[in-house]
Design a protein around this nucleic acid. Structure first.
Lengths: 194, 194
DNA sequence: ATGCTTAATCGACACTTGTCGATTTATTTT
DNA sequence: AAAATAAATCGACAAGTGTCGATTAAGCAT
């Protein structure tokens, strides 16, 4: 069971109807979120907006939280891709990632909804982890340290910090915050080499 | 609207019926979680187990997720309190916190349910933050660094690392993991002093 | 073009959710 | 002890949820 669109560029062909349905559901939810709170949106409303049947929804997602999560992951992946953030150009990349998370959060919560809730962790953090994963592959050589663990820990730290920043009343600029996050998180990766 | 029991030792008196209802609801949920998945438990089942009316449930929690969160926070707070973990005895405390999180996760997910899901972030992380907060108060002096931000970032990092450890197949001991976490997270606090 | 496979649709189902007003019961105040 | 306050109960409600079997229609293979 494939779980997200627009990954795996050369993967095996996927039925275009599946892509279409998922895309329309995401667009429908995105559109509705401009008008009302996530909690106040029913599956029926989503499929109406998407001009799909309600049963089709459940063919793709177990519930509306899963759709929100998939949509968030897709959008954030998109933002990362647009900025060309791979960890291959290694320095400054950490700050760029942090800035991406801050920007994304600020952007999607500038809407009427205060989306700084839970379902986002499950979608943004894994994307950040993947970026670190790719970066680790391009890195010199992992002696004995668990690169994946470092990536996970850093991803959570970044998200937690960005989330706190977002819900701070008189917050500083995203760029400033990204610099702070970089300072805090960078040593995590250095901790491996004592 | 008070949100949790067993805090504020000398606070204004709370109606004993409120404490009783919330305690019974938490115990009921805890008991049911030994038998079935959280998703498969309805509010009706919870109040049946607690011998309370369903309307009473909604008098205290907006939904069952809120109850799970409150229960988790209470249990984790309890574990922290039992171990006497305040950050006042500053060194080694970070590892002790990490160990507490690992132990708690391993303990509550040893049950049939794989509770390493989302609602836990919302309950464990804040508790860890509070511990850091108290520790910061007993600390020398915050020059210009945002102690709260450091605490939040560290709390998320700890939880993320512990969570990953938990769902690792051939995982190392909790003590070993706590040591690793300490190593990774400690520099976060030192990052402030360049 | 024809059939095979699988996604999308439809209507219906039992169940859960969250809320309400009205009543009863427990606790605190005076 | 009696009155005032607030929590717990009850029944009922409209709405939403997740699932099902049966049908239609779109995409893919040969």
């Amino acid at each position: 069971m494939p779980e997200s669109l627009q990954s795996e560029p050369t993967a095996e062909a996927v039925d275009p109807r599946i892509l279409r349905s998922r895309r329309m559901l995401m667009e429908a939810l995105g559109s509705l979120l401009n008008r009302k709170e996530f909690e106040d949106i029913s599956v029926q409303e989503i499929v109406d907006e998407a001009t799909l049947n309600r049963a089709t929804f459940y063919l793709h997602y177990p519930d509306k939280n899963a759709l929100l999560q998939a949509m968030t992951a897709a959008r954030f992946r998109d933002l990362i891709a647009r900025r060309g953030l791979s960890f291959t150009d290694c320095d400054g990349a950490l700050r760029a990632i942090a800035l991406g998370v801050c920007d994304y959060l600020a952007e999607t919560t500038g809407c009427p909804s205060q989306l700084a809730k839970m379902p986002l962790e499950g979608s943004i953090i894994p994307v950040v982890e993947v970026v670190f994963q790719e970066g680790a592959a391009h890195h010199p050589a992992p002696p004995d340290v668990d690169q994946a663990l470092l990536g996970t820990t850093a991803a959570w730290a970044i998200f937690g910090a960005a989330r706190r920043w977002l819900q701070t009343p008189g917050r500083v600029s995203a760029e400033e915050m990204a610099a702070k996050i970089e300072e805090m998180v960078k040593p995590i990766f250095l901790s491996a080499s004592h």
